[in-house]
Design a protein around this nucleic acid. Structure first.
Lengths: 206, 206
DNA sequence: GAAAAAATACCTGTTAACAGGTATTTTTTC
DNA sequence: GAAAAAATACCTGTTAACAGGTATTTTTTC
């Protein structure tokens, strides 16, 4: 019996290509290709695949959000992330969600098949060896969890390039209060460069 | 006769997937898959493909540089760019190099085959219709070319988060000179947000 | 219900960026 | 070799961010 598989990737070409790689192998049957991550949960619920391959970078819902939705279904599907990058801490995040493998797009097709077969046998695979060298190591996730709710509110407005004055106005707070929050945020973040700060802001949800 | 094709893409998985899509179609024969862009020129010279598919984003040599190298060979191979994004002005750049098609990775496999067949018949294809909606329209390239050499020098140091004072020191210039350059740069760039400015800095080569 | 954490508010002083100027010298272009 | 472009330099004033404080009120936690 071939493994019933669903591929979730907005890059149609990549999705189609991977689909063919799986079919060619003779071990996998692609029962559905999803190009819009928002359809992931309902389709996986109704089609009940044994294996789901999820792209990390997608519009609307990113890979992590999709995984969370799939986990909410509470079934025993295997979930594999295929990503362009291999951020150590991002992998940590996915591990917390209990995914079965994290594979980069630089993996050859044959290796992918081998990896997927192992996953179906219950193994967990994470490309953590090659990773450390190439990739940014910032633990944005951990940092985020040092911040309070109010601090996050203010950060989101900072992301929108609002000034302290405007933020105070918008949240009906004193200018000084917002300044204090910013000060506390800065103490917690301690980024060395503005670029790093802006990259961090990018990881915030609106 | 099948069209002899070479695929140049560092993402092995994508390269393999596309290769299968082409083979499946029955119209194309993938005579070589290149994962390292630095091998493009020599391999294409010796193997003489009729069609070359080039990824845009690659380490070492990006798509544009590869195309330039291929053009230097002076043969009549068709060149097609496959890119994640569809930046209008980037397409312009490639057009200048005389490529035959620019296709995004959101194209379904069947459409890719149709497009490639048309290319082999001499047509030129550029995905400029679907593009405008989804993609950032910033003409970073054009902006860059408004800047003078000295302004670029200073921008690169700004990218490294140096202050006006330090930049002046490093370039053996007066503080005021650097300030003037920054002023002129700002007048030329006119970015609305800091984020946009930092994104622009990212497109600079060191 | 006491203790800790989070949110609020105010004050002073510094600093780097930036926008507005003007002006001279050097280099490039035709 | 004249004209245009690029690079250099100086000056004034404003502004937003930020680091250093202190202090009270509200909410959460055990």
């Amino acid at each position: 019996m071939k493994t019933k598989t669903i591929i979730i990737d907005d890059h149609t070409l990549f999705n189609d290509g991977m689909s063919l790689i799986l079919k060619e192998s003779g071990f996998f049957e692609v029962i559905e290709q999803i190009y819009d991550s928002r359809q992931a949960q309902t389709k996986c619920f109704s089609l009940r695949p044994e294996l789901i391959i999820v792209d990390y970078n997608m519009p609307h819902l990113n890979g992590l959000e999709v995984v969370k939705q799939l986990n909410a279904l509470g079934s025993d599907m295997k979930i594999v992330i295929v990503s362009m990058y291999a951020d150590k801490k991002e992998i940590e995040l996915f591990k917390k969600e209990g995914i079965d493998a994290y594979i980069t797009k630089t993996t050859p097709g044959t290796q992918l098949i081998e990896a997927l077969k192992k996953v179906m046998e219950g193994e967990k695979l994470f490309e953590s060896k090659n990773i450390a060298k190439t990739v940014i190591e910032k633990d944005f996730f951990a940092i985020k969890h040092q911040l309070t709710k109010r601090e996050m509110d203010i950060l989101r407005l900072i992301k929108q390039e609002e000034t302290t004055e405007k933020i105070a106005e918008m949240l009906n707070l004193s200018f000084y209060t917002v300044e204090t929050h910013r000060k506390n945020i800065n103490h917690k973040l301690k980024f060395k460069t503005k670029k790093e700060f802006y990259e961090f802001l990018e990881t915030l949800d609106e």
